[in-house]
Structures are given as C-alpha cells and as structure tokens.
Simulated scan of single mutants.
Amino acid sequence: MLWPLASLLTAVLATLLAGWLVDQILQRLAARHPNSPVWESLRRCRIPLQLSLLTAILLASPFLRRVFPSQDGVVRHTVLLALIASLGWLTVRVLTAALEAVFARYQTVTEDASRIQRVETQLGLVRRVGSAVIWVVTVGTLLLTYDAMRTVGASLLASAGLIGIVAGIAAQSALGNFFAGLQIAFSDTVRIGDTVVLEGQQGTVEEITLSYLVLRLWDYRRLVVPVSYFVSKPFENWTRRDPGLLAWVLLHLDHRTPIDALRAELERFLATTDLWDGQEWSLTVTDTTPSTIVVRAMMTARDPDAAATLKLATREHLLAHLGTHHPESLPRIRTT
C-alpha cells in the first residue's frame, strides 16, 4: 500500500513543482517586460495547467491499475474526463490572456478613444464566441468518450438535418440576437462607453454580450436591452464619432438684460471650469416675446457626463450672476 501512496504523492509534488516553475518563469518575464501584460495574464492559467498535468501523469502511470484493479476502466475514464475538461479550461484561460494582451498593446499604439472602445467591444465578443466554441468542443469530446455516443453517432448525423430545422425555429430569437451581437461588434454602431438614447432613456453602454446590452442610466439603474434592438430600430448614439458634445442652456430674461456683459461673464466662467473642453462657446438671443427674450448659451464638453454637469453649472452661475449684478434682467410679470 505504501507504493501507491508514494506514487500519488510523487505525481502531486511533480505537478506542484511544474506549476511553480512555470509561474516563476512567467513572473520573471513579466518583470522584464512590464509593457507586455500577456505574461502576467498567463499566470492565471496555473491551476488548469496543474490539473491537466496531474491527470495526464495519472493516466500514463500504472498507479490507477494497481490501486483500482477491479474498476480500472471506470476510474481511468473518470480521470480522462477530468483531463479533457481541464484542457478546455486551460485553453479558455490562454485565449483570454492573449486577447487581453492584444487590447493592452493596442492601447499603447493609439490615443483615439473611439477606436479603443471599438476594439474593446470586438475583442470582448471574440472572447465570448471563442470561449463558447471551446466549451462546445470540450463537451463534444467528453461525450465521444462514451461507447454509447459513438454507437448512435450515425443515427444522430442522419437526423441532424431535421434537428437543425427544429432547433433553428425554436431558437430563432436567440440566433437573431447572436448574429446581431456580431454585427454590432464589427459594424461599430455601438461600443462600450458610448452614450446612447433609446425610448427616451439616456445611458452609457456598460456591457455588450451576444444576447443583450446593458445600459447604465443616470440614476445608476441598469437597462438590459436585447442586441437585436440596435439593428432593427433607430436610436441615438451621441459619441459614435466624437466623444465631445455641445451643451446648451436656454434662459428667459427681461428685455433690459445686458447681453454683452452676460456674454463676457459666460466666457469668464468657462475659463475657470474644467468641464469645458476649451473648443467652442457662444451666447446669442434666439427669440423674443412681448415680455421676455430667449438667450441661448452653448459650450462644448469632452463627454456626455461633463456636458450634463456643465449645463447645470452654467445655468446656475448665470442666474446667480444676473440676480446679484443685474436684477432687472430677471423676468417679471407685468400687470399694467
């Protein structure tokens, strides 16, 4: 009984040693190449790698046959299933690490925020599709290890056409969302980080999957929308080409308002706030009524969140300035 225990202990120690050595090598490579995150990402593959090595060693050694002589076939099959599953797990981890390294590399060669968001969205969907394909292949390989599955393989292939038609009809909605997700990823209509408006709701795209899209609303609620919505219905994308936006404020003021002084105050205020991107601004009278004039102040911001905050801050500042220095500019209701 001591020999089997010694063999098992040796296999476990060899697996732990191999995992430790690989981790040390990756750690040294990550220290030598700090700008290449692939080595640090590959360190997350340590557990599935050790599990794959351990199951492979057990299958190759006579340990199972000597410890379980009467149930050697069942035990070896169980270990084989564990080996196939751990290899699939390891492949998914390697794919994820490679895509993360590609995205990190792309971030260092471009400063265009829109391109970075587009690549992030595309790589995220590629990772999900690749992981799904790997797991499907892994599960198929697991099933093929059973004799019964190989026996009925011919009949399954013969009826694959009918099953495919039935499955296609039953999963029409899911397949539609799947291809819509691929279309969104590679047509650049919606990206992670974009600000969109649909059905009167404004939000920031937080997550894109093959079946749904998550919007973070202004009050931190999450709106979950099928991706097929974005290829079948119109919606507003405020940041598709340029993340900057034009904020505007309308003020109803008295006819005695000093427009030049108000325009100068807006210029002074914008110069003191970080919300303004320093590109464009204006203040004009856009309309008039018998009792008031309509003044519109416009200014650009770097992103939708800054534009919304700048809009509120500008309105508050201009009204406070008029109330303090030009109270006659505030509208009044005349009774005579």
Rank of each mutant, 00 (worst) to 15 (best):
Thr151His: 06
Thr151Gln: 10
Thr151Gly: 06
Thr151Leu: 09
Thr151Phe: 02
Val152Pro: 01
Val152Gln: 11
Gly153Thr: 15
Ser155Ile: 05
Ser155Glu: 12
Ser155Asn: 05
Ser155Thr: 03
Leu156Thr: 08
Leu156Tyr: 01
Leu156Ile: 09
Leu157Trp: 09
Leu157Met: 08
Ala158Asn: 06
Ser159Asp: 00
Ser159Leu: 00
Ala160Leu: 09
Ala160His: 08
Ala160Pro: 00
Gly161Ile: 09
Gly161Asn: 07
Gly161Thr: 11
Gly161Trp: 09
Leu162Phe: 08
Leu162Pro: 01
Leu162Cys: 09
Ile163Lys: 08
Ile163Trp: 12
Ile163Ser: 11
Gly164Tyr: 08
Gly164Glu: 11
Gly164Pro: 02
Ile165Cys: 13
Ile165Glu: 14
Val166Met: 11
Val166Ala: 14
Ala167Phe: 11
Ala167Leu: 12
Ala167Tyr: 08
Ala167Lys: 01
Gly168Met: 10
Ile169Gln: 12
Ala170Glu: 06
Ala171Lys: 12
Ala171Met: 15
Ala171Trp: 14
Ala171Asp: 15
Gln172Trp: 14
Gln172Thr: 13
Gln172Phe: 14
Ser173Asp: 13
Ala174Glu: 15
Ala174Trp: 05
Ala174Phe: 06
Leu175Thr: 05
Leu175Glu: 02
Gly176Arg: 00
Gly176Tyr: 01
Asn177Trp: 05
Asn177Gln: 09
Asn177Val: 07
Phe178Trp: 09
Leu182Thr: 00
Leu182Asp: 03
Leu182His: 04
Leu182Gly: 12
Gln183Asn: 01
Gln183Glu: 08
Gln183Arg: 03
Gln183Ala: 05
Gln183Thr: 14
Ile184Val: 15
Ala185Asp: 10
Ala185Pro: 10
Phe186Trp: 14
Phe186Thr: 01
Ser187Asp: 13
Ser187Ala: 15
Ser187Pro: 01
Asp188Ala: 15
Asp188Gln: 10
Thr189Leu: 05
Thr189Phe: 15
Val190Cys: 08
Val190Ser: 03
Val190Leu: 12
Val190Glu: 02
Arg191His: 01
Arg191Lys: 10
Arg191Tyr: 00
Ile192Ala: 02
Ile192Val: 15
Ile192Gln: 11
Gly193Pro: 04
Gly193Ser: 04
Gly193Lys: 02
Gly193Asn: 04
Gly193Cys: 12
Asp194Ser: 02
Asp194Arg: 00
Asp194Glu: 03
Thr195Asp: 13
